[in-house]
């Protein structure tokens, strides 16, 4: 039970980071934390199904369900891609506005438009 509560707290921290923090880099941290939480959730819960290492040989039963781990490998890869892309976009935003604050970025860009 305690592990699930810890995961929930971690999830909320990530979500808090995305919504409340003004700094765009910290928002990306929040997203990464969210992503890691889900990875941990899948791996943790997946490991509870079965008890042995999933090697398909005789006498090794019941094996741990290998599917959640396999899924999370993909999810980690996607998460890294999204983080990298987000950071590169933020770099370009910083180049054109000179700030990391989301509200300032917005107001500066809108001023250009008006």
């Amino acid at each position: 039970m305690i592990d699930r509560i810890l995961l929930l707290i971690l999830f909320l921290i990530g979500f808090y980071g995305i919504i409340v923090k003004k700094n765009v880099i910290k928002k990306i941290f929040g997203l990464t934390i969210l992503n890691s939480t889900i990875v941990m959730l899948f791996v943790l819960e997946g490991s509870k199904i079965g008890s042995h290492v999933p090697i398909l040989e005789e006498n090794i039963t019941p094996i741990v369900d290998p599917v959640p781990q396999a899924l999370m490998l993909t999810a980690i890869v996607i998460g890294v891609c999204v983080t990298a892309l987000a950071l590169s976009i933020v770099y370009r935003l910083f180049n054109s506005t000179g700030t990391f604050d989301i509200d300032e970025i917005r107001s500066k860009l809108y001023k250009d438009e008006e």
Binding site: I89, R92, L109
Partner: peptide
């Protein structure tokens, strides 16, 4: 465009 980067973000 700078606006495009914010929209995309």
């Amino acid at each position: 465009k700078p606006g495009a980067f914010l929209a995309s973000f």
